[in-house]
Design a protein around this nucleic acid. Sequence first.
DNA 1: GATGAATGAGCGTTCATTCAT
DNA 2: AATGAATGAACGCTCATTCAT
Lengths: 224, 224, 224, 224
Amino acid sequence: MDRLLQNIKIAINDNIYVKDPESSELGRRIIEYSIVLIDEIGFEAFTFRKLGERIGSNESSIYRYFENKHKLLVYLSSWYWGWLEYQLVFATHGVPEPEEKLSRAIEIISRNKVEDQNFGHINEVLLTRIVINESSKSYLTKEVKQENRDGYFVIYKRMVHRLEEMIRTCNPNYKYTTSLASTIMETSLHQHFLKEHLPSLTNGGEDNATTTFIKEMVFSTIKK
Amino acid sequence: MDRLLQNIKIAINDNIYVKDPESSELGRRIIEYSIVLIDEIGFEAFTFRKLGERIGSNESSIYRYFENKHKLLVYLSSWYWGWLEYQLVFATHGVPEPEEKLSRAIEIISRNKVEDQNFGHINEVLLTRIVINESSKSYLTKEVKQENRDGYFVIYKRMVHRLEEMIRTCNPNYKYTTSLASTIMETSLHQHFLKEHLPSLTNGGEDNATTTFIKEMVFSTIKK
Amino acid sequence: MDRLLQNIKIAINDNIYVKDPESSELGRRIIEYSIVLIDEIGFEAFTFRKLGERIGSNESSIYRYFENKHKLLVYLSSWYWGWLEYQLVFATHGVPEPEEKLSRAIEIISRNKVEDQNFGHINEVLLTRIVINESSKSYLTKEVKQENRDGYFVIYKRMVHRLEEMIRTCNPNYKYTTSLASTIMETSLHQHFLKEHLPSLTNGGEDNATTTFIKEMVFSTIKK
Amino acid sequence: MDRLLQNIKIAINDNIYVKDPESSELGRRIIEYSIVLIDEIGFEAFTFRKLGERIGSNESSIYRYFENKHKLLVYLSSWYWGWLEYQLVFATHGVPEPEEKLSRAIEIISRNKVEDQNFGHINEVLLTRIVINESSKSYLTKEVKQENRDGYFVIYKRMVHRLEEMIRTCNPNYKYTTSLASTIMETSLHQHFLKEHLPSLTNGGEDNATTTFIKEMVFSTIKK
DNA sequence: GATGAATGAGCGTTCATTCAT
DNA sequence: AATGAATGAACGCTCATTCAT
């Protein structure tokens, strides 16, 4: 992305963190290296102690920012979806044609991600990999319902509802707009996962194959 | 299901377990109560110690059957898919019409599950809930690739390939058969998850809505 | 008590604190809310962090006043005994009859306490409960001897010696004046503790039963 | 004590421990060295980790026997009271004269303790010191009431009730039997504490002074 | 003088696992 | 084959305290 947006900051629900990691140097290091480390060793093996070692800081300092590693993952996921949402709004703003709008939205969500210079301390490529591999763990817990009530997933849900709205504009008579919207989101992640880890379960090998697959599926489904 | 099948046994790849849990009373208790306990407290909080307490046996005995709790989850998932595969084969066998065949397959995979009297020690309703809530944790690990090589996911993959084959029979020209097949599998689980935990992200509220949604999507996608 | 004494201040040995908590608003808030909080959660669970949160101040500020929570407890105990001593002196001053004097002293020490309007920021009822439940922890430590040398318990000891003196005046031949005096002090606390927590170990249920019990015991013991 | 009683075992309420420490060598070492270590460094500084180091065993093994250090202290206190109770029963059994009986009981409770050869792994002298210095911490907690309900203090309470019964036999008209009984128990400990740490608050310096003091006090109090 | 941020150390606990029976 | 006991290692977290402002 261009650098016009240098001052923007992805806004995250403030009861996900204890202290805003964007508010200090240490906070930003926590974000930067948690992404690197989770990608390296997986979320299961990731601990605040190891992160502390990596950033040359005591784990107790990290507790000033996040109550536990689970909330840190929720934060990273939220940031990811906030970042995608930003791109989606930017790319679809002012596009009059509903099909074109939805097409661009699917593209943003399902394409291969590249680094974004606007957020120096965040490696979006690694983060995307984390979201693909681990983010379901942020909601597949016994506490989903409470966390949902606490607004942990607002950005994700807003994304789904934006898609839903676009689908409805394309075809007001289509019955399963919400399910289709959430399927777009989930399929985007899942197909990328398979491509990486279980390639025999996908045709997504070539560039943009996933995007094309989803677009075809969505548009034939909602065609009047 | 009827009870004609009383003697059948779902065959599970034998390097998932150390000792076949179907081969002893203790083994069957391990399976029975691991399902109950994981459903109760979640896979994260589930430990062999707690399972041992529940079945009145020492945790070390459980190690005779499974190397660790992760493999036990792989076993349960495999069993689930094996069970579904059985139903799928049974329901589609001898159906000449390709569309009808695929339609029945989707139905088997995505419908709400009920208890199956053929497997007394397994509560299929709870198991389905576990697969919906937790099974992604069985492959979302750093070790997927190795485990795939070890054949942990053969049944799942065979299911995908069966679907793929049916899709191809319906329309030999459709390009993304594998992706569509894996999307059917994943969407079936995901929509049920949303229905349960984040209902605002699905239209799947009514009976069979998920099945209808998927069928519509699939058939419009592959329509010649 | 009447309000004639508005300007009095209980004098506490100044090496118990770093900075006199009576010398500032923050100091008084520390005293006020430490009493409330210790009563609420117990001394064990009480920390400067929690106290800081309660008074809307950083824990590091509290360290300006007290080196650690143990010294704060010593301070509170000392304040309690200083407060009791004041009442004792006030109530026995000018009483010529030795038995009457001792009787009034025992009364002061063992009666149920009520709030004293002279010290607005201190809730004497809660403080009494703390002294009953927790104050032994202020001297039951490996450091008693050193702390005694440092004068941490002067007020308490002065109280014992005042009682001792009164006992001796009643009966100059009684041999165990000091032990009896310290037993009066300890029994007053202990019986109140039992009344509250293990009532089957006391007859102290009715009003003033503890006072009557102690008086009877003391006077029969020292009777010539 | 003589060695006639070699086979006796002090019976402790079995929900104080997870596994009976008398049932294994490791368990007995835990008891033996916890007494030594608590006496050495104080209960506050005592941790299972340090105990583990001392007995050359991992702290996790200790958790097999006691849930936490607080319960271990409850166990030690209970053992102490059980041991005293045994002596008390033994010393008063068959004594017809009520005053003599009570006198012997007070003696048992308040005298200086010496090692008892019947319990090889327990150093009764150190244990007595622990009970004097630390045991109040076993009941001065926010959880007393619940723990009382759970029977943690049964032996202590039985001791009080035995004393109470003896007092009543001496003088059926005395009103405060329970309070006097609990005062005997408490004063015995407290005077020994003072003798050791704050000797200016006691006359208990000479041998048996505490015993004599208490006996005089009790008998003059209940004298008809 | 009061505060906010950061830290090191250690606690209590649990887990997965092994060993001996 | 199944069990019970024991262990090492690590986790999550909190505490008391210090430093810089």
